[in-house]
Structures are given as structure tokens and as C-alpha cells.
């Protein structure tokens, strides 16, 4: 029994970290723009498909394919700012208009992917080890994918943390997130920081999408909403302003999901996220965005 527990905990933490990574992207984006991007999860789908294309179709090594995919998706973030955010801001479109615009964008990208790659899920190459050959410690079988995810996320978080605390750009970004007006007065180029936060949030989500692909396949599910809402739920746990609490929130959701599947039914796996969201939002004391 204990071995099943540990197995579930490990895979829950691994998947949860990826939800958390998506949530982290949401938080970073929200902090600088004060908006929610409902096409956020499309970046994960784009990342996974691009990485698949580079790795499988063009036979590039996996790490190179991943880096190229993330860079391309970050460039898509640039386009998002230029063609959706800026025109809307210029015409004084509010939050609702941004929500609807990004929702339509996610439908558009979903259909663009269907046109380009077809709607059939594609198996991701076994770069994280064969799922049929887990690592066996005593009576516990652990998917190597989970361990790779743990490794990647740890490295990524350390890199992100040093970016935020050590580099001038990272510090400026944090200043913009805290107080845009004051940051502008201190001579920080707010426009540039906004661009960076667009690229950062789409890039992070692309990374999460690539790492999620072995679990969800390279499929439209990655851009289809439910995972995006899990990311939002993680961000809500982090109160939209604490990126690392969002990461932790994702882990909570991942664990809750896995244990619900273990003890109840897989039908209610996704309901957990929604229950989580409602609980966190309604029960909590102050909730204003």
C-alpha cells in the first residue's frame, strides 16, 4: 500500500510541478499587465508541437529542439503583444475584451494546429526514458519521466530566481510588477519590461507543455482548456502575486488529482481542479482582482 502511495505522490508532484509552472507563467503575466491571458495554454500546445516537429520530423537533438521551440513560442508572445494587447489597449478595450480576444485566439491556434498537424494525438519520443521501464527501488516503481521533470523544474527555478535577483532586467521586471508608475519614474523602460514578461510567460508555458507531452501526448488536449484552468487554479493559490506559491499550488492540485483517481474515480479527476478553484476563491477572506 505504501509503495502505491509513494508512486502516486511522486507522479503527482511531477505533474503538479508542471501545472505550477503554467501557473507561474500566469502570475508573471498578471503581475505586469494586470490581465489574464485565456490563450495562455495555447503556448504549451505550440511548444509541444514545435518540439515534436523539430525532434521527430527534422531529426534535431531533443535539447536543441526544446530550446528552439521555446524561443519560437516566446516570439509568438511578442506577436501576441503587438497584435492583440497593443491594439486593444489603444482602443481602450477592457478586461472582458481581452478575455474574449484571447479566447478566440486560443480557438484559432487550436484550429491552426489541426490544419498543420492534424487532430490525431502523436506519441512523444521516449526522451525521458521508456514508460514501460520504470525505475524500481524496492517495491516502488517510479517513472523516469517524473525524475526528469523534477530535475528540469529545479534547474529552471534556480535560473529564474537568479534572473530575478541578480540581473538588472530581472530586478526591473520585479519593480514593474510591484509598481508600474514608480518604476517608470525610476527610469525603467516599462514598455520593454512588458514585452519581456509576454515572452517570459509564453516561454515558460511552452517548457511546461513540452514536459507535459509525455503524459498527455502531443495532442490538442494541451491547448484545450482544462490544463489551462489547472494553471489558473495554481495561480489563484499563489494569489496572483506569488510565483513560487503558484508552483506549490500546482503541486497540491497534482497530488489531489492523483489521490482522487486512486481512491474515487478517474471521472472526477478534473472536477477536483474546479472544486479547488471554487474553494480557494469563495472561502478565502479577501479576493479582489
Amino acid at each position: 500500500m505504501l509503495s502505491i502511495w509513494i508512486q502516486n505522490a511522486v507522479s503527482g508532484v511531477a505533474i503538479g510541478l508542471l501545472y505550477g509552472l503554467i501557473g507561474l507563467g500566469v502570475v508573471l503575466f498578471f503581475q505586469t499587465t494586470n490581465l489574464l491571458n485565456f490563450a495562455h495554454i495555447s503556448s504549451a500546445m505550440l511548444g509541444a508541437y514545435l518540439c515534436y516537429m523539430f525532434n521527430v520530423t527534422l531529426h534535431l537533438p531533443f535539447v536543441l529542439a526544446m530550446v528552439l521551440a521555446i524561443i519560437l513560442v516566446a516570439c509568438y508572445g511578442l506577436l501576441l503583444k503587438r497584435f492583440v494587447y497593443e491594439p486593444l489597449a489603444k482602443r481602450e478595450g477592457g478586461r472582458l475584451e481581452f478575455i474574449i480576444a484571447t479566447m478566440m485566439l486560443s480557438v484559432f491556434l487550436l484550429n491552426a494546429v489541426i490544419v498543420l498537424w492534424g487532430g490525431v494525438p502523436k506519441p512523444f519520443p521516449n526522451v525521458f526514458g521508456d514508460p514501460a521501464k520504470p525505475l524500481i527501488i524496492g517495491s516502488v516503481a517510479i517513472q523516469t519521466h517524473s525524475l526528469w521533470v523534477l530535475g528540469y523544474v529545479t534547474v529552471f527555478v534556480i535560473a529564474l530566481q537568479s534572473f530575478f535577483t541578480k540581473t538588472m532586467t530581472g530586478k526591473s521586471l520585479r519593480a514593474v510588477a510591484q509598481n508600474q508608475g514608480a518604476a517608470r519614474l525610476m527610469g525603467i523602460d516599462v514598455e520593454k519590461m512588458l514585452t519581456i514578461s509576454f515572452m517570459l510567460s509564453t516561454g515558460i508555458t511552452a517548457l511546461a507543455g513540452i514536459l507535459l507531452a509525455p503524459a498527455y501526448f502531443v495532442s490538442l488536449d494541451l491547448g484545450g482548456g482544462i490544463i489551462g484552468i489547472k494553471g489558473f487554479a495554481a495561480a489563484v493559490v499563489g494569489r496572483m502575486n506569488k510565483p513560487y506559491v503558484a508552483l506549490l499550488g500546482g503541486v497540491l492540485i497534482g497530488l489531489a488529482e492523483n489521490f482522487v483517481v486512486l481512491y474515487a474515480s478517474s471521472v472526477y479527476r478534473d472536477v477536483i481542479t474546479f472544486a479547488f478553484l471554487i474553494l480557494f476563491l469563495v472561502v478565502r477572506k479577501k479576493a479582489e482582482v
Partner: peptide
């Protein structure tokens, strides 16, 4: 709740 949080609650409700 208002704004985005409310929209997330209604999305959950719909799902």
C-alpha cells in the same frame, strides 16, 4: 468576487 476570479468560478461551474 469580481473580475477574473468571478470568471474562473463561472468556468468551474460550467465544467
Amino acid at each position: 468576487l469580481s473580475g477574473f476570479y468571478l470568471s474562473l468560478v463561472t468556468i468551474s461551474f460550467g465544467n
